[in-house]
Nucleic acid binder design. Sequence first.
RNA 1: GAAGUCGGCUGGACAGUCGCUGUGUGUCUUGCCUGCAAGACAUGUGGAGGAAAGUCCGGGCUCCAAAGGGCAGGGUGCCAGGUAACGCCUGGGGGGCGAGAGCCUACGGAAAGUGCCGCAGAAAACAGACCGCCGAUGGCCCCGAUGUUCGCAUCGGGCGCACAGGUAAGGGUGAAAAGGUGCGGUAAGAGCGCACCGCGCCGCUGGUAACAGCGGUGGCAGGGUAAACCCCACCCGGAGCAAGACCAAAUAGGGGAGCAUUGGCGUGGCCCGCGUUGCUCCCGGGUAGGUCGCUCGAGCGUCGCGGUGACGCGGCGCCCAGAUGAAUGACUGUUCUCGACAGAACCCGGCUUACAGGCCGACUUCCUUU
Length: 119
Amino acid sequence: MALLGLTSKRRLKSRSQFDRVFDHKCCSRDKYFAVYACPNNEQGPRLGLVVSRRVSRRAVDRNRIKRQIREDFRLSAAGLKELDYVVVARSAALEETGAAIRASLQQHWKRLNKQCGNS
RNA sequence: GAAGUCGGCUGGACAGUCGCUGUGUGUCUUGCCUGCAAGACAUGUGGAGGAAAGUCCGGGCUCCAAAGGGCAGGGUGCCAGGUAACGCCUGGGGGGCGAGAGCCUACGGAAAGUGCCGCAGAAAACAGACCGCCGAUGGCCCCGAUGUUCGCAUCGGGCGCACAGGUAAGGGUGAAAAGGUGCGGUAAGAGCGCACCGCGCCGCUGGUAACAGCGGUGGCAGGGUAAACCCCACCCGGAGCAAGACCAAAUAGGGGAGCAUUGGCGUGGCCCGCGUUGCUCCCGGGUAGGUCGCUCGAGCGUCGCGGUGACGCGGCGCCCAGAUGAAUGACUGUUCUCGACAGAACCCGGCUUACAGGCCGACUUCCUUU
Protein backbone atom coordinates (compact mmCIF):
# COMPACT_ATOMS: atom_id res chain seq x y z
CA MET A 1 0.00 0.00 0.00
CA ALA A 2 1.01 3.65 -0.38
CA LEU A 3 2.64 5.02 2.72
CA LEU A 4 0.41 8.04 3.18
CA GLY A 5 0.48 8.07 6.94
CA LEU A 6 3.02 9.88 9.09
CA THR A 7 2.43 8.41 12.51
CA SER A 8 4.76 8.59 15.44
CA LYS A 9 6.54 5.49 14.17
CA ARG A 10 7.65 7.41 11.11
CA ARG A 11 9.29 10.17 13.17
CA LEU A 12 12.64 10.45 14.86
CA LYS A 13 12.26 11.10 18.54
CA SER A 14 15.32 10.84 20.70
CA ARG A 15 18.54 12.75 20.74
CA SER A 16 20.49 9.56 20.04
CA GLN A 17 18.53 8.94 16.83
CA PHE A 18 19.31 12.44 15.63
CA ASP A 19 22.97 12.15 16.51
CA ARG A 20 23.26 8.91 14.55
CA VAL A 21 22.00 10.62 11.41
CA PHE A 22 24.30 13.63 11.81
CA ASP A 23 27.31 11.39 12.39
CA HIS A 24 26.71 9.52 9.16
CA LYS A 25 27.79 12.65 7.26
CA CYS A 26 25.61 11.99 4.27
CA CYS A 27 24.14 15.33 3.42
CA SER A 28 22.47 17.43 0.75
CA ARG A 29 22.02 21.15 1.04
CA ASP A 30 20.80 24.27 -0.73
CA LYS A 31 19.81 27.72 0.44
CA TYR A 32 16.54 26.54 2.02
CA PHE A 33 17.50 23.28 3.75
CA ALA A 34 20.29 20.99 4.83
CA VAL A 35 19.06 17.39 4.71
CA TYR A 36 20.98 14.59 6.41
CA ALA A 37 20.31 10.89 5.87
CA CYS A 38 21.35 7.55 7.28
CA PRO A 39 20.24 3.96 6.60
CA ASN A 40 18.09 2.32 9.23
CA ASN A 41 17.38 -1.36 9.61
CA GLU A 42 14.40 -1.60 7.28
CA GLN A 43 12.09 0.42 9.47
CA GLY A 44 10.73 2.39 6.51
CA PRO A 45 11.57 6.04 5.77
CA ARG A 46 11.61 8.17 8.93
CA LEU A 47 11.72 11.94 9.35
CA GLY A 48 13.20 14.32 11.87
CA LEU A 49 12.85 18.12 11.80
CA VAL A 50 15.07 20.90 13.06
CA VAL A 51 13.73 24.44 12.82
CA SER A 52 15.67 26.57 15.23
CA ARG A 53 14.72 29.84 16.77
CA ARG A 54 17.35 31.42 14.57
CA VAL A 55 15.17 30.82 11.50
CA SER A 56 12.34 32.86 12.98
CA ARG A 57 11.48 34.12 16.43
CA ARG A 58 7.80 33.60 15.75
CA ALA A 59 6.39 30.17 16.53
CA VAL A 60 3.82 30.58 13.78
CA ASP A 61 6.53 30.77 11.13
CA ARG A 62 8.41 27.78 12.48
CA ASN A 63 5.25 25.69 12.57
CA ARG A 64 4.42 26.62 8.99
CA ILE A 65 7.82 25.45 7.74
CA LYS A 66 7.53 22.18 9.62
CA ARG A 67 4.10 21.49 8.23
CA GLN A 68 5.23 22.08 4.67
CA ILE A 69 8.15 19.71 5.09
CA ARG A 70 6.03 17.10 6.77
CA GLU A 71 3.37 17.27 4.10
CA ASP A 72 5.85 16.87 1.28
CA PHE A 73 7.56 13.97 3.04
CA ARG A 74 4.21 12.29 3.57
CA LEU A 75 3.29 12.51 -0.10
CA SER A 76 6.76 11.44 -1.27
CA ALA A 77 7.35 8.65 1.22
CA ALA A 78 6.19 5.89 -1.12
CA GLY A 79 9.13 6.56 -3.42
CA LEU A 80 11.77 6.78 -0.72
CA LYS A 81 14.25 4.19 0.47
CA GLU A 82 14.44 2.99 4.04
CA LEU A 83 16.48 5.83 5.49
CA ASP A 84 16.30 8.19 8.43
CA TYR A 85 16.11 11.80 7.24
CA VAL A 86 16.76 14.97 9.23
CA VAL A 87 15.74 18.23 7.60
CA VAL A 88 17.38 21.34 9.02
CA ALA A 89 15.65 24.52 7.91
CA ARG A 90 17.70 27.60 7.06
CA SER A 91 16.54 31.18 7.28
CA ALA A 92 15.87 31.45 3.50
CA ALA A 93 13.03 28.97 3.90
CA LEU A 94 11.11 31.61 5.78
CA GLU A 95 10.74 33.82 2.70
CA GLU A 96 9.47 31.12 0.34
CA THR A 97 6.14 29.35 0.19
CA GLY A 98 4.66 26.23 -1.39
CA ALA A 99 6.14 25.51 -4.78
CA ALA A 100 9.77 26.53 -4.23
CA ILE A 101 10.00 24.46 -1.07
CA ARG A 102 8.41 21.48 -2.79
CA ALA A 103 10.91 21.62 -5.65
CA SER A 104 13.84 21.95 -3.26
CA LEU A 105 12.78 18.99 -1.14
CA GLN A 106 12.15 16.79 -4.18
CA GLN A 107 15.76 17.39 -5.24
CA HIS A 108 17.03 16.47 -1.80
CA TRP A 109 15.08 13.21 -1.61
CA LYS A 110 16.32 12.15 -5.01
CA ARG A 111 19.95 12.99 -4.33
CA LEU A 112 20.07 11.29 -0.95
CA ASN A 113 18.41 8.14 -2.21
CA LYS A 114 21.16 7.84 -4.81
CA GLN A 115 23.98 8.85 -2.48
CA CYS A 116 23.05 7.08 0.69
CA GLY A 117 20.77 4.30 -0.45
CA ASN A 118 23.70 2.20 -1.81
CA SER A 119 26.13 2.60 1.01
C1' G B 1 -27.00 63.99 9.96
C1' A B 2 -21.82 65.51 11.46
C1' A B 3 -17.83 65.59 15.05
C1' G B 4 -16.37 63.27 19.47
C1' U B 5 -16.07 60.29 24.39
C1' C B 6 -16.66 55.63 26.90
C1' G B 7 -17.84 50.37 27.20
C1' G B 8 -18.70 45.50 25.06
C1' C B 9 -18.74 41.60 21.17
C1' U B 10 -16.41 39.40 16.85
C1' G B 11 -11.51 37.82 14.58
C1' G B 12 -13.84 34.79 6.98
C1' A B 13 -17.92 30.98 5.60
C1' C B 14 -19.39 26.25 3.21
C1' A B 15 -18.45 21.41 0.69
C1' G B 16 -15.22 17.28 -0.85
C1' U B 17 -10.52 14.20 -0.76
C1' C B 18 -5.94 12.89 1.86
C1' G B 19 -3.35 13.31 6.66
C1' C B 20 -1.97 14.28 12.32
C1' U B 21 -3.52 13.83 17.63
C1' G B 22 -6.85 12.78 22.27
C1' U B 23 -10.96 9.75 23.37
C1' G B 24 -15.61 6.26 23.07
C1' U B 25 -17.33 1.72 20.58
C1' G B 26 -16.60 -2.68 17.58
C1' U B 27 -13.54 -6.54 15.14
C1' C B 28 -8.91 -9.09 14.73
C1' U B 29 -3.84 -10.49 16.43
C1' U B 30 -0.28 -11.38 20.42
C1' G B 31 0.71 -12.18 25.80
C1' C B 32 -0.74 -14.52 30.18
C1' C B 33 -2.85 -15.15 36.14
C1' U B 34 -9.69 -15.40 31.53
C1' G B 35 -10.53 -10.11 31.84
C1' C B 36 -6.92 -7.00 31.55
C1' A B 37 -2.48 -5.07 28.71
C1' A B 38 -0.22 -3.91 23.94
C1' G B 39 -0.76 -3.40 18.63
C1' A B 40 -3.52 -3.08 13.85
C1' C B 41 -7.99 -1.80 11.25
C1' A B 42 -12.97 0.33 10.95
C1' U B 43 -16.34 3.91 12.77
C1' G B 44 -18.30 8.02 15.94
C1' U B 45 -16.62 12.32 18.38
C1' G B 46 -13.25 16.56 20.50
C1' G B 47 -8.76 19.42 18.88
C1' A B 48 -5.17 26.94 19.87
C1' G B 49 -5.96 32.75 21.30
C1' G B 50 -8.13 37.50 22.44
C1' A B 51 -4.10 38.38 23.09
C1' A B 52 -2.11 31.40 23.30
C1' A B 53 2.76 36.76 23.11
C1' G B 54 6.15 39.90 26.53
C1' U B 55 7.43 37.01 31.18
C1' C B 56 6.13 42.59 34.25
C1' C B 57 3.19 41.44 39.00
C1' G B 58 -0.12 38.07 42.13
C1' G B 59 -1.81 33.12 43.63
C1' G B 60 -2.52 27.62 43.48
C1' C B 61 0.57 23.17 43.13
C1' U B 62 5.55 20.65 44.17
C1' C B 63 10.22 20.11 46.63
C1' C B 64 13.71 22.42 49.87
C1' A B 65 12.51 21.60 57.48
C1' A B 66 6.98 22.17 59.36
C1' A B 67 9.43 27.78 56.17
C1' G B 68 10.63 29.11 62.09
C1' G B 69 13.82 33.74 64.71
C1' G B 70 17.10 37.93 63.47
C1' C B 71 19.86 40.92 60.00
C1' A B 72 20.40 42.27 55.06
C1' G B 73 17.57 42.95 50.61
C1' G B 74 13.13 43.89 47.66
C1' G B 75 8.15 45.79 46.85
C1' U B 76 3.87 49.01 47.70
C1' G B 77 2.47 54.26 49.08
C1' C B 78 -4.74 59.61 49.31
C1' C B 79 -9.23 56.72 51.60
C1' A B 80 -12.75 52.66 51.73
C1' G B 81 -14.21 48.16 49.62
C1' G B 82 -13.68 43.52 46.34
C1' U B 83 -10.53 39.16 46.02
C1' A B 84 -7.10 33.14 46.98
C1' A B 85 -3.83 37.27 46.18
C1' C B 86 -1.89 41.56 43.65
C1' G B 87 1.65 46.64 41.72
C1' C B 88 -5.23 44.47 39.61
C1' C B 89 -10.45 45.99 39.81
C1' U B 90 -14.69 49.01 41.91
C1' G B 91 -16.52 53.28 44.49
C1' G B 92 -15.08 57.89 46.78
C1' G B 93 -11.68 62.34 47.84
C1' G B 94 -7.64 66.00 46.39
C1' G B 95 -4.93 68.22 42.12
C1' G B 96 -4.50 69.18 36.67
C1' C B 97 -6.68 69.41 31.41
C1' G B 98 -11.16 70.01 28.25
C1' A B 99 -16.92 73.96 26.03
C1' G B 100 -18.82 69.02 27.38
C1' A B 101 -19.40 63.53 27.56
C1' G B 102 -14.88 62.57 29.81
C1' C B 103 -9.42 62.03 30.40
C1' C B 104 -4.67 62.15 33.29
C1' U B 105 -2.58 61.68 38.25
C1' A B 106 4.25 57.59 42.10
C1' C B 107 -1.24 61.49 45.46
C1' G B 108 2.92 59.50 52.81
C1' G B 109 7.13 62.54 55.18
C1' A B 110 11.63 68.16 53.38
C1' A B 111 10.81 71.61 61.82
C1' A B 112 15.57 63.45 62.08
C1' G B 113 19.97 63.73 59.21
C1' U B 114 23.07 63.67 54.53
C1' G B 115 23.75 64.89 49.34
C1' C B 116 22.63 67.75 44.83
C1' C B 117 20.67 72.44 42.54
C1' G B 118 23.84 73.48 35.39
C1' C B 119 22.88 78.33 32.57
C1' A B 120 21.20 83.11 33.72
C1' G B 121 21.26 86.43 37.83
C1' A B 122 23.68 91.20 42.61
C1' A B 123 22.13 87.05 45.37
C1' A B 124 20.13 79.81 44.97
C1' A B 125 19.49 78.83 51.05
C1' C B 126 21.22 82.52 54.82
C1' A B 127 18.50 86.59 55.26
C1' G B 128 21.26 89.39 52.21
C1' A B 129 21.02 94.06 48.44
C1' C B 130 23.33 95.16 41.85
C1' C B 131 20.44 99.11 39.70
C1' G B 132 16.80 102.00 41.79
C1' C B 133 13.87 104.85 45.75
C1' C B 134 14.42 107.79 50.27
C1' G B 135 17.68 110.43 53.15
C1' A B 136 12.52 112.00 58.08
C1' U B 137 16.88 111.34 61.93
C1' G B 138 22.37 112.16 62.53
C1' G B 139 26.54 114.31 59.51
C1' C B 140 28.66 117.72 55.71
C1' C B 141 27.97 122.22 52.64
C1' C B 142 25.49 126.99 51.55
C1' C B 143 22.21 131.29 53.14
C1' G B 144 19.89 134.34 57.02
C1' A B 145 19.10 136.02 62.18
C1' U B 146 20.90 136.44 67.23
C1' G B 147 24.95 136.11 70.64
C1' U B 148 30.29 136.51 70.58
C1' U B 149 36.08 135.76 74.24
C1' C B 150 35.90 136.61 66.52
C1' G B 151 37.72 130.22 67.19
C1' C B 152 32.59 129.46 67.03
C1' A B 153 27.64 128.48 69.44
C1' U B 154 22.21 128.48 69.08
C1' C B 155 17.83 128.98 66.06
C1' G B 156 15.51 129.15 61.24
C1' G B 157 15.74 128.09 55.97
C1' G B 158 17.77 125.15 51.32
C1' C B 159 14.84 121.09 44.19
C1' G B 160 21.71 121.30 48.37
C1' C B 161 25.31 116.64 49.02
C1' A B 162 24.32 111.23 49.20
C1' C B 163 28.74 110.27 54.22
C1' A B 164 26.18 107.32 58.04
C1' G B 165 21.78 105.07 57.54
C1' G B 166 16.63 103.36 56.00
C1' U B 167 14.10 100.40 52.27
C1' A B 168 12.46 95.69 49.39
C1' A B 169 7.32 98.77 46.51
C1' G B 170 9.72 99.02 41.20
C1' G B 171 13.69 97.03 37.34
C1' G B 172 16.24 92.78 35.61
C1' U B 173 17.46 86.81 35.85
C1' G B 174 15.27 82.23 36.59
C1' A B 175 11.35 76.52 37.09
C1' A B 176 11.85 78.96 41.85
C1' A B 177 13.88 85.19 45.03
C1' A B 178 10.06 86.25 52.68
C1' G B 179 1.93 84.98 49.55
C1' G B 180 -1.67 88.04 46.05
C1' U B 181 -5.07 92.42 45.00
C1' G B 182 -6.84 97.07 46.79
C1' C B 183 -7.06 101.08 50.34
C1' G B 184 -4.68 103.53 54.24
C1' G B 185 0.06 104.80 55.89
C1' U B 186 5.29 106.72 55.25
C1' A B 187 10.98 110.52 54.14
C1' A B 188 10.69 106.30 50.96
C1' G B 189 8.73 101.79 51.99
C1' A B 190 7.22 97.33 54.28
C1' G B 191 1.34 92.58 57.13
C1' C B 192 3.28 98.45 59.46
C1' G B 193 -2.56 98.73 59.80
C1' C B 194 -7.33 97.23 57.48
C1' A B 195 -10.73 94.39 53.82
C1' C B 196 -11.08 90.10 50.62
C1' C B 197 -8.50 85.73 48.84
C1' G B 198 -4.40 82.20 50.19
C1' C B 199 -1.64 79.68 54.41
C1' G B 200 -0.92 77.64 59.55
C1' C B 201 -3.33 76.43 64.24
C1' C B 202 -7.89 75.52 67.23
C1' G B 203 -13.02 74.25 67.51
C1' C B 204 -17.79 72.66 65.60
C1' U B 205 -20.75 70.12 61.81
C1' G B 206 -21.16 66.20 57.87
C1' G B 207 -18.66 61.64 56.38
C1' U B 208 -16.43 54.59 58.26
C1' A B 209 -12.31 57.42 56.14
C1' A B 210 -9.52 60.36 52.61
C1' C B 211 -11.69 65.04 52.92
C1' A B 212 -15.28 69.02 52.76
C1' G B 213 -18.11 73.14 54.90
C1' C B 214 -18.58 76.83 58.71
C1' G B 215 -16.68 79.78 62.80
C1' G B 216 -12.61 81.62 65.56
C1' U B 217 -7.55 82.84 65.75
C1' G B 218 -2.17 84.03 64.26
C1' G B 219 0.16 88.86 60.38
C1' C B 220 2.39 84.39 58.38
C1' A B 221 5.71 79.65 59.70
C1' G B 222 10.13 79.79 54.71
C1' G B 223 13.22 77.20 48.66
C1' G B 224 13.17 72.79 45.46
C1' U B 225 14.47 67.63 44.94
C1' A B 226 12.40 61.57 48.53
C1' A B 227 10.85 57.31 40.25
C1' A B 228 18.59 60.90 45.46
C1' C B 229 20.14 58.33 50.01
C1' C B 230 16.82 58.25 53.88
C1' C B 231 12.46 58.17 57.64
C1' C B 232 7.43 56.17 58.53
C1' A B 233 3.44 52.45 57.68
C1' C B 234 2.18 47.82 55.50
C1' C B 235 3.69 43.34 52.68
C1' C B 236 7.38 39.57 51.02
C1' G B 237 11.56 32.60 52.85
C1' G B 238 13.85 30.19 48.16
C1' A B 239 13.48 27.65 43.76
C1' G B 240 10.50 26.08 39.81
C1' C B 241 6.51 20.90 36.02
C1' A B 242 13.65 20.23 33.16
C1' A B 243 9.03 21.24 40.19
C1' G B 244 8.39 16.49 41.92
C1' A B 245 6.66 11.02 42.39
C1' C B 246 6.92 6.03 40.46
C1' C B 247 8.70 1.77 37.07
C1' A B 248 13.20 0.55 35.38
C1' A B 249 18.97 -1.26 30.86
C1' A B 250 24.14 -0.87 30.88
C1' U B 251 27.76 0.73 34.77
C1' A B 252 28.31 0.55 39.86
C1' G B 253 26.64 6.28 42.41
C1' G B 254 22.39 4.47 47.10
C1' G B 255 18.59 3.42 51.65
C1' G B 256 17.60 2.15 57.10
C1' A B 257 19.25 1.59 62.39
C1' G B 258 22.97 2.61 66.23
C1' C B 259 27.36 5.56 67.91
C1' A B 260 29.98 10.27 67.57
C1' U B 261 28.49 16.64 67.97
C1' U B 262 34.36 18.80 67.30
C1' G B 263 35.82 19.81 62.18
C1' G B 264 34.61 19.82 56.70
C1' C B 265 30.60 20.26 53.02
C1' G B 266 25.57 21.65 51.67
C1' U B 267 20.98 24.31 52.48
C1' G B 268 18.18 31.19 49.99
C1' G B 269 22.71 36.58 50.59
C1' C B 270 24.48 36.19 56.00
C1' C B 271 23.88 34.44 61.29
C1' C B 272 20.92 30.99 64.22
C1' G B 273 18.72 26.60 62.89
C1' C B 274 18.44 22.22 59.80
C1' G B 275 20.57 18.42 56.61
C1' U B 276 24.88 15.67 55.29
C1' U B 277 29.85 13.71 55.66
C1' G B 278 32.81 9.77 59.62
C1' C B 279 32.66 4.44 62.11
C1' U B 280 29.71 -0.33 62.87
C1' C B 281 25.62 -3.50 61.38
C1' C B 282 21.63 -4.62 58.00
C1' C B 283 19.18 -4.01 53.19
C1' G B 284 19.24 -4.32 48.04
C1' G B 285 20.30 -0.30 44.18
C1' G B 286 18.17 4.08 39.84
C1' U B 287 21.43 7.52 34.67
C1' A B 288 19.25 6.25 29.05
C1' G B 289 14.09 5.24 28.25
C1' G B 290 8.98 5.01 29.98
C1' U B 291 4.57 6.17 33.23
C1' C B 292 2.27 9.71 36.38
C1' G B 293 2.11 14.94 37.47
C1' C B 294 -1.67 16.61 32.96
C1' U B 295 -6.18 18.88 33.06
C1' C B 296 -13.14 19.12 36.62
C1' G B 297 -11.15 24.20 37.36
C1' A B 298 -10.71 30.55 42.43
C1' G B 299 -14.31 26.34 35.45
C1' C B 300 -18.26 27.84 31.65
C1' G B 301 -23.49 29.06 30.48
C1' U B 302 -28.15 30.61 32.38
C1' C B 303 -31.83 32.25 35.99
C1' G B 304 -32.92 34.42 40.82
C1' C B 305 -31.44 37.31 45.15
C1' G B 306 -28.09 41.10 47.78
C1' G B 307 -24.84 45.35 46.55
C1' U B 308 -24.13 52.32 43.50
C1' G B 309 -20.25 48.92 41.72
C1' A B 310 -16.00 45.51 41.62
C1' C B 311 -18.25 41.19 43.47
C1' G B 312 -20.85 37.65 46.62
C1' C B 313 -24.71 33.78 47.63
C1' G B 314 -28.10 30.08 45.76
C1' G B 315 -30.76 26.93 41.91
C1' C B 316 -30.44 24.41 37.17
C1' G B 317 -27.58 22.76 33.06
C1' C B 318 -22.72 21.63 30.65
C1' C B 319 -17.54 19.07 30.09
C1' C B 320 -14.71 22.78 26.63
C1' A B 321 -6.90 20.72 23.53
C1' G B 322 -3.67 17.89 26.61
C1' A B 323 0.78 17.34 22.56
C1' U B 324 6.03 15.77 24.49
C1' G B 325 11.80 15.90 18.29
C1' A B 326 6.08 18.30 20.21
C1' A B 327 -0.82 17.39 16.82
C1' U B 328 -5.29 21.85 14.08
C1' G B 329 -2.51 20.93 8.08
C1' A B 330 -2.39 20.18 2.52
C1' C B 331 -5.04 20.19 -2.07
C1' U B 332 -9.56 21.29 -4.95
C1' G B 333 -14.13 23.96 -5.68
C1' U B 334 -17.93 27.75 -4.41
C1' U B 335 -18.73 32.42 -2.07
C1' C B 336 -18.15 37.44 0.50
C1' U B 337 -17.03 43.19 2.52
C1' C B 338 -10.60 39.17 -0.02
C1' G B 339 -9.08 37.92 5.94
C1' A B 340 -4.70 41.64 10.71
C1' C B 341 -1.72 40.41 15.00
C1' A B 342 -0.30 35.82 15.77
C1' G B 343 0.44 28.98 17.81
C1' A B 344 -1.38 26.05 24.08
C1' A B 345 3.46 23.34 26.81
C1' C B 346 1.48 22.65 34.95
C1' C B 347 -2.93 25.72 35.87
C1' C B 348 -5.50 30.24 37.10
C1' G B 349 -6.18 36.09 38.17
C1' G B 350 -4.29 40.68 36.20
C1' C B 351 -1.09 44.25 33.60
C1' U B 352 1.46 45.59 29.15
C1' U B 353 2.36 45.29 24.03
C1' A B 354 0.60 43.77 18.66
C1' C B 355 -3.85 43.80 15.55
C1' A B 356 -7.21 44.00 8.56
C1' G B 357 -11.73 44.96 9.34
C1' G B 358 -16.92 44.38 11.09
C1' C B 359 -21.06 44.84 14.69
C1' C B 360 -23.77 46.66 19.13
C1' G B 361 -24.92 49.92 23.29
C1' A B 362 -24.60 54.47 26.41
C1' C B 363 -23.39 59.56 26.55
C1' U B 364 -21.63 64.80 24.86
C1' U B 365 -21.55 69.03 21.42
C1' C B 366 -23.30 71.25 16.92
C1' C B 367 -26.66 71.52 12.69
C1' U B 368 -31.35 70.40 10.11
C1' U B 369 -36.51 68.96 10.19
C1' U B 370 -41.36 67.99 12.57
